[in-house]
Simulated assay, not measured.
Amino acid sequence: MFFYSFLFLLVTSLADGMESGIIGGKEAKPHSRPYMASIQCRNHHTCGGMLIREDFVLTAAHCLNYNVNDQVHLEVVLGAHNLTKVEKSQQRIPVMKLIQHPRFKKNNEHDYSYDIMLLKLKKKAKLNKYVKVMPLPKKSGKTPANVKCSIAGWGSKTASGKRASDVLREVGLKLQFSFECKNKWQQYFDSERMICSASDGKHAFCWGDSGSPLICNTKAQGIASYTIDSSCTSTKYPQSYVKISYFLPWIKENIA
Rank of each mutant, 00 (worst) to 15 (best):
L74M: 11
L51K: 04
G79S: 01
G49H: 01
V86I: 13
H73Q: 10
L64N: 11
M50F: 10
A80W: 08
N82T: 06
A60F: 00
P30N: 08
M50D: 03
K29M: 11
N82I: 07
N65A: 10
E54R: 08
V68W: 06
H44D: 15
G48P: 08
V68N: 11
G48N: 04
V86S: 12
A60T: 01
D70K: 05
A61K: 03
G48L: 02
H62E: 06
S38G: 10
H45S: 03
N67P: 04
N67I: 10
N65M: 14
Q71A: 04
M36P: 09
V72Q: 12
C63Q: 11
M36S: 05
Y35Q: 07
V86N: 15
F56L: 05
H73I: 03
N67E: 14
L51P: 04
L83S: 13
T46Y: 01
Y35L: 03
T84S: 14
H73K: 12
N82V: 12
H31A: 10
L64P: 00
L83M: 14
V57G: 03
M36G: 03
H81M: 11
Q40V: 06
A37V: 09
H62T: 09
G48Y: 02
H73M: 10
L51I: 05
R53D: 08
L74F: 09
Q71W: 04
N82W: 09
D70E: 15
E27T: 11
N69D: 09
A60K: 00
M36D: 05
S32T: 06
Y35G: 08
T84A: 12
T84N: 15
E75P: 00
I52A: 04
Y66S: 15
P30W: 02
F56Q: 02
T84M: 11
L51D: 03
S38V: 05
N43Y: 13
V72F: 08
S38P: 04
V68Q: 13
A80E: 13
G48H: 05
V72P: 01
K26N: 13
D55I: 00
N82C: 14
D70P: 02
V76G: 12
D55K: 00
A80G: 07
A61D: 07
K85F: 12
E54L: 01
Y35F: 15
T59M: 01
P34M: 07
G49C: 02
L78R: 02
L58H: 04
Y35W: 13
N69K: 12
T84I: 09
E54C: 00
T59N: 07
V57H: 00
M50G: 04
K85W: 07
V76L: 07
C63Y: 05
K26S: 15
E75A: 05
K26D: 14
K85L: 12
E75H: 07
L78D: 07
H62C: 09
A28I: 01
N69S: 14
L58C: 07
D70A: 08
P34E: 05
